[in-house]
Structure formats: C-alpha cells, structure tokens
Nucleic acid binder design. Structure first.
Lengths: 165, 165
DNA sequence: TATTGTTATACTCTATAACTATA
DNA sequence: TATAGTTATAGAGTATAACAATA
C-alpha cells in the first residue's frame, strides 16, 4: 500500500531521498537505476577507444569465436539481426573485424577479427575491467560475484540454479 | 584475455551458449540482459492497466507524495524534466493524477493523485508484486534482498554501505 | 519453402537547448 | 538572473515487416 506521507511541499528537500521507497522494493526499478549508472560509466570508459557497450560486446565475441556468422552473433548477444548490421558496419569501418565469405554458405559472412581488432579488444577488456573494479569498490568480491550469479539466474531461471550440478 | 576457441562454424550450435563467457565476467553486460528480461515482463504486467514502467513509477511517487512538483518528481525518478512532461500528460489524460496550481509558486504545479489514480496504483502495485514474485522464484528471498541492496550501493556508493550504521 | 543479411520503419528512453511565465 | 514547465530535437536501443540472394 502506497502510504500516507504529508504533502511534500511542506518539507525541506531532504524528504525526497525517501520519496521512492515504495518503488525500491522492486528489483526492476532499482536495477534500471543501477544499470543506467553502470552503462554511463562503461560507455565513458569505452568512448576513448571508439567503442560503446554494444560494439565492445560484439568485438569480444568475434575475437573469442572467429568465423561466427552474423545471425549467430545476434543470437549470442540477444539482439535482433537487423540491429546488428550497423554495429558490424561500425566495427568493419574501424578496421577491427572483417566480413569474410563463409566457406559453407554463400548467403552468410564469417566474421573474423583483424590484428588491430584483437589488439583493441585486449585494451578494451582492460578498460572494462577497470570499470568493473569501480563497481566492485561498492561491493565485496563475494557480493559482486553473487550479484552476477543472481542476474544470470533472473535472465535464465533454468540455468545457473546452482553451478555444482 | 579473449581466449582461443576454434572456429565456431566447426561446431554445433551448443557451443554458442558459452560464446559470451568473457563478457559474463562483467556486471554491466549481465545486468543489461537481466534488466531487459525484467523490463519486458514488468511492462507486460502493467500493460493491461494502461501503464508502463515509467508511468507506473511516476504514479506511485505521486500517490506517496501528493503535492509534489514536476521538477521534484523528475529528481526523484532520476530523469530529465522534459522527459517527464509526456508521462504526466499521459497520467493526467487517463484521469489518474491532476496538475493543480501550486499554492506557493505560480510557475509550478502540485501533482495530486485522483481517487482513480490511488485505486489503480494499488492494483498496479499488486501486479508488480506478482512480477517480483516471478523474479524471486529464481532467487531465495535473502538473495533477492541482497541483489536490491547491491544494486542500490552500485547506484549510490556513499549510501547504503551497510544499513546498520 | 526457409534462411542470411539487409533496408526501412517505428517506438521507447534519454539528453540538451531554448522558449514562456514567473520568481 | 534564476527557476518551473514546456517545446523541439536528436541520439541511442529495440522491434517487426519485407526484400534479394541463396539454401
């Protein structure tokens, strides 16, 4: 139940810090706000490298899985195929990955990292790790790992129930 | 370091489930994906009531804090003032809140819930609680509360260090 | 007939500058 | 001059339909 605060105008601004206490019970609301903070910091960390969160993610997966097709990469990143096209364009224009002809299927491209792409990927992972260290400063390391495990279980409830199975 | 998988095309699709393992170390990536799942479910739960995540949040804060001005509401919700205007329009058109003249300041509006707004707010909170129960099904209750606490600390590192201070 | 990559399109959320009317 | 609400606009991220080439 919403509650029964007095009118907010009657009080100093300090009362606003608790003005969303009902919403704070809900993980979606708090997650949205935390994610916004994290995404801003992450994009700021990646901007000097000419990357953003999405292009960084695509680059890492291509470096880890050379030869991947675009439809596979979209599936891995959980985005729609059309939305990946501009990301690949961006990475290709920057000379970080190539669209090579797939040996098996003339409709498809095999995505491969260039040497520059592999090098920048390493640099970017280092930058993102520094961002992660800033996140970790607000948490203990077990808390940080528990957070990631909880988020993974929320995304895919059947997986990651407990990883000792 | 990215690693050295063989070419993904050599393998069946099963290999894709681990194709983003490097990214999974980073809270931002996993949070983005979990948030996307949560936001979709939350919006689906609210859609039958004519609400979405943002309008629901605004309604709850107005019901909890009648008389709030728009600029205060924007600050509470951590969104820019211009982006709140259409949300308030939407809630006012639906007859859930009113823009009343502020007694103190003729530039400002005092936002107040209508009876319908208060009623729908209660219904919506119930719907969101059911959504939260679905989230909780993937976690234990202490895990769910630890998740929310961790997200709050990430958003505002200085607050919520430990709440027994 | 189905799939790959693509184009076009649209909707949401977010961010900034500038306007008006008040203060 | 500063602030409250507003308008206009732009940029991301995301979603669907439909097309050409290929399977």
């Amino acid at each position: 139940m919403p509650g029964s605060s007095p009118r907010a105008g009657d009080r100093p601004d300090d009362s606003l810090i608790a003005a969303d206490r009902t919403l704070r019970q809900f993980s979606g609301y708090t997650m949205k706000r935390a994610f916004h903070v994290i995404q801003s910091d992450l994009n700021a960390a990646l901007a000097p490298l000419g990357l953003r969160m999405l292009s960084f993610s695509a680059l890492v997966v291509v470096v880890d899985n050379p030869g991947l097709r675009q439809s596979q990469l979209a599936e891995v990143l959980a985005i729609e195929r059309p939305n990946l096209v501009l990301v690949i364009d961006e990475l290709e224009r920057a000379g970080l990955i190539c669209r090579n002809p797939s040996p098996d299927d003339r409709r498809a491209y095999a995505l491969d990292p260039t040497d520059d792409g592999r090098a920048l990927c390493g640099t970017a992972i280092h930058a993102v790790q520094e961002h992660e260290d800033r996140v970790a400063r607000a948490l203990t390391e077990p808390e940080r790992q528990a957070l990631i495990a909880a988020l993974l279980r929320i995304e895919t409830p059947e997986e990651g129930e407990t990883s000792d199975g």
